[in-house]
């Protein structure tokens, strides 16, 4: 456990000791702020009954952050260590592969959550200036953050896997981005299928990140979705672990 904490702390510190971490946070804060301004303007001219969190999630700023931040945070995890050679240093200390993968993923996840904190400030602004007491529902905010957490964890695990199989950071980021976009698009495929394709569209609807996120933003927590995200995240972490172990049978 102490090795896990030591490793995770270093990974997190590495993001803040280099300029990368600050650039990511600044970019995300800018995008969140832009999205917020856009929907506040719309709200001013066109009042609606839709919860604030749902409006925010359906803006493309939100999805841009989700799809881009994952690869950018995770690309360095393994690929940078491999290209700089420190991977050799790391893997010849008495740490297990599981500890390395878990620590790197945990550090990425913590950073990702820190990155989303500015959204709270935006919601705070809404609650401070709104006349409607029900504009912000704690359930909806909790649901939104749970959705951000689950979807993010999945995208980060995709990124971890991409980084573990790449030698360069650029390669890792590209693979992770392609995987993320492919995954995101799968959900839309369900609606594009002909009505006769019953089981296919049923199957594909599980991958509907967009629809599931809408439920979360409304404060509806569907256990099927939660289990789906958690198990897929674990699956990709398992693949990452195998990729890390692969140097022993290559």
């Amino acid at each position: 456990m102490s090795i896990f904490l030591t490793l995770a702390r270093r990974e997190l510190a590495a993001l803040f000791l280099s300029v990368t971490g600050y650039i990511i946070i600044a970019a995300v804060t800018l995008l969140i702020g832009l999205g917020f301004v856009v929907f506040l303007t719309n709200l001013g001219s066109d009042p609606t009954l839709v919860p604030v969190t749902e409006m925010f999630y359906s803006s493309y700023f939100f999805w841009l952050i989700l799809l881009v931040a994952g690869p950018v945070i995770t690309m360095r995890l393994f690929a940078l260590e491999k290209s700089s050679g420190t991977y050799e240093n790391l893997m010849t200390t008495p740490v297990s592969d599981v500890e390395v993968v878990a620590a790197k993923f945990a550090a990425a996840l913590v950073f990702y959550l820190i990155m989303w904190l500015p959204l709270l400030a935006c919601l705070g602004v809404v609650s401070r200036f709104t006349q409607q007491p029900g504009a912000l529902d704690p359930g909806a905010i909790g649901g939104t953050y749970l959705g951000i957490f689950l979807v993010g964890a999945l995208f980060l695990s995709l990124g971890c896997f991409a980084s573990a199989i790449s030698r360069t950071q650029m390669g890792a980021a590209m693979i992770a981005f392609v995987l993320g976009v492919a995954f995101f698009s799968l959900g839309f495929l369900a609606s594009a299928l002909p009505a006769t394709a019953q089981w296919q569209s049923n199957f594909l609807s599980y991958f509907g990140v967009f629809g599931q996120m809408r439920d979360f933003a409304r404060g509806v927590v569907d256990t099927r979705a939660v289990i789906f995200y958690v198990s897929l995240t674990l699956f990709f972490l398992f693949l990452t672990l195998r990729a890390v172990e692969s140097r022993r049978w290559k």
Binding site: R10, A14, L17, S18, S84, G85, T86, E88, N89, T92
Partner: peptide
């Protein structure tokens, strides 16, 4: 073990 080219975490 000190690997070839002595890789280190340069930011630390």
């Amino acid at each position: 073990f000190m690997p070839e080219n002595n890789p280190l975490y340069l930011e630390m």
